[in-house]
Each structure stands twice: as structure tokens, then as C-alpha cells.
């Protein structure tokens, strides 16, 4: 189904959506853009000229989430908000990340109810990237600026209107009231998509990356690339596909909670005995890269990186994932 969403009608369309669902969109607070539920009406409430800094995976895997509560000698479920949600303006890299994480949290072997329920009640309206950033590298990791995997609707900006393509029943239901796109509009959207894709730099090829990284497992390479690393959690917490969590009993709250965790923290793999199988930043850096580019592939046959570039842009030590992959290939 291919419809059009005129920009002039965007605010009223979103208002219509808001009658039946909570609409999340990228909102600028101070200088930081993040997905927030829209409370007001009009285009001024959200911003579409920048991707969110904080990854929208948090809509399904909140950074801190109570799993259950202790009440006397009983355990009580924590009622999550399972109202219908529409996420407007999510970028293809982030929607694709949700799809990759479905493999982890809603795969054939395990189903995480907390993730799955939220996913089931959420429609993702993705905005394709006609103007990708210098730090974007989605095409290098098997995706692209208009990759619709994970999204229910893909919007293509062709000037006055967005061409809206629905790929799922949820998406089709959402677009049902909109006008059909004309052939010229569909052609214009195909052209815009092709141009964006062609304009993107392709920093590396994925061929043989798994073997390359396994070959370097015990190499000095990891010492070299990790030297500037501060060992903070910026790259992993801003990453749309990092999904490790730590389960904590918050005794004062009477809750068992899970928080995002990161392999870059020393405490992540610290064992109660005092032993740490990843004792230094060298092993931890290797884990971060290999999880995405080798181990994730073993499990799901995909690269666990969607090329959003947040880790590149916000690393306080200027470490660049693209550079690490390139160096591994020239070394290995």
C-alpha cells in the first residue's frame, strides 16, 4: 500500500492518530533530541531534522524497568503501560535495530514478555533518510537509508509530501484514510531513495568479517584500538542494538528491576569470587566489537550493527567503529 502524507496535513494527521494512540516523535529538549510522547498539537512539537541521540530501543527495552514487585510475601506483576503507541519519525537504522532485537527478545527460543508486549502494541512510522549524516554507514552493514525492515510504514520525503509505504497490516491500518500516491509520486520517491543510497560513503565491506575477527582474537590489535578508550558506556548506551541488561533487586523499592548494562564496564563481567574473565579494557573492547560483528551473526545470521553512527559521533575519545572494522581487515 502506497499513500501520500502531505506535509501541510502532518499535524492534523498526527492529531487523528493521537485520538487512538500515544504518538511518540523526536522532540528537542535543550539541544538533545529524543523520542517523547506528544502532548500538544502542531508541527512545532517535534523535530525531524536530526535523529534522536538516545536510541528508541528504550521504548521497548527501557533503560530501567521494574519486572515485578514484592508485596508482603507475594510477588506482584508491575503493570506496564500497554496502550497503543505510534512512533513517528523513527529512522530506518533504529527500526531495523528493533527488528534485530526481535530476534533476541521475541525469537524462536525465548520470548521476553516485556519487550514483546510493547512491540505488539506499537506501530513504527519510519522516516527514510534523504540526507544521511557523515557518520552514517547503514549501507555498509547490509541496510540502507530506506531499509523498511522493522518498520510498519516508510516515509519518503519528496518535497511537499511524504510518500508513505505500508509493509505490515498495522501500517496499512494506520494509512487507510490517506490518499493513494500517484505513479509520479511513487517514481519520485524511488528516485529520492536511490539518490540517498548512492550518496552514502561505504567505509567497508562485510565479506569475511567474522573470520577476520576470529583470526585476530589473540592479536595485539585489540590493545592498539582500545588505547584511547575511556571505558565509559556512551557507545553501548546510545547503540540501538546493544541489549545487555543487569537484573538488580532494589530492596528499598521492593522491586526486581533490570537496567541496561554494558560490556565496557569493568563490573559487567566481574564475578563474585573476584575473578573477572574480561579483566582489562582490551578484552572488553574486543567483546563489544565481536559481539556485533561476529557473535551476533553466529546466532542470527545478521550483523548486530545498523550503522546509525551514534557511537562514532558521541565517543568522547573519538573512537570510530568504521575505522576499527577497516583496521581489522587490513591487519587480518
Amino acid at each position: 500500500m502506497i499513500k501520500i502524507l502531505p506535509k501541510a496535513d502532518l499535524a492534523t494527521t498526527i492529531d487523528q492518530w493521537r485520538v487512538e494512540a500515544t504518538v511518540y516523535a523526536p522532540v528537542r529538549q535543550e539541544e538533545v533530541v529524543g523520542f517523547q510522547p506528544l502532548t500538544g498539537s502542531g508541527n512545532g512539537c517535534f523535530t525531524l531534522d536530526a535523529n534522536s541521540r538516545y536510541p528508541p530501543k528504550s521504548l521497548f527495552l527501557p533503560q530501567s524497568e521494574a519486572l515485578f514487585r514484592v508485596a508482603g510475601s507475594d510477588l506482584e506483576p508491575v503493570e506496564g503501560d500497554l496502550s497503543e503507541r505510534i512512533v513517528f519519525g523513527i529512522r530506518p537504522c533504529d527500526a531495523r535495530a528493533c527488528q534485530l532485537l526481535d530476534g533476541v527478545f521475541a525469537g524462536t527460543e525465548y520470548t521476553d514478555p516485556y519487550w514483546s508486549e510493547k512491540r505488539r502494541h506499537t506501530t513504527l512510522v519510519a522516516l527514510g533518510c534523504t540526507d544521511p549524516c557523515e557518520t552514517c554507514f547503514c549501507t555498509a552493514v547490509g541496510s540502507g537509508p530506506f531499509d523498511s525492515r522493522g518498520a510498519d510504514v516508510m516515509l519518503t520525503d519528496i518535497g511537499e509530501v511524504y510518500v508513505a509505504q505500508a509493509d505490515t497490516a498495522q501500517g496499512e491500518a494506520l494509512l487507510s484514510r490517506l490518499q493513494d500516491a500517484s505513479q509520479e509520486q511513487i517514481d519520485a520517491s524511488s528516485q529520492a531513495q536511490a539518490e540517498a543510497r548512492a550518496a552514502m560513503a561505504r567505509p567497508f565491506e562485510l565479506d569475511g568479517i567474522r573470520e577476520t575477527l576470529y583470526g585476530l582474537f589473540d592479536d595485539e590489535f585489540w590493545y592498539d584500538v582500545q588505547q584511547p578508550c575511556l571505558g565509559c558506556g556512551v557507545c553501548t548506551f546510545l547503540c540501538p542494538t546493544c541489549h545487555c541488561f543487569d537484573i538488580v533487586d532494589e530492596a528499598q523499592r521492593g522491586e526486581r528491576v533490570r537496567n541496561w548494562d554494558t560490556c565496557m564496564f569493568q563490573i559487567y563481567s566481574q564475578e563474585a569470587s573476584g575473578h573477572n574473565p574480561r579483566p582489562t579494557n582490551v578484552e572488553r573492547t574486543r567483546q563489544r566489537i565481536m559481539h556485533k560483528y561476529a557473535y551476533f551473526g553466529e546466532l542470527y545470521d545478521e550483523v548486530g550493527c545498523t550503522g546509525c553512527g551514534r557511537c562514532v559521533r558521541y565517543c568522547p575519545a573519538g573512537i570510530d567503529m568504521r575505522q576499527i572494522i577497516r583496521s581489522s581487515q587490513s591487519r587480518g
Binding site: 539541544e31 533530541v33 541521540r53
Partner: peptide, 10 residues
Amino acid sequence: LGPGGFAEVL
């Protein structure tokens, strides 16, 4: 260049 936006400085 847009806060939080596009890292286009070449």
C-alpha cells in the same frame, strides 16, 4: 548545522 544533527563538518 543542527543540534544533535548531522555531523557534516568535513
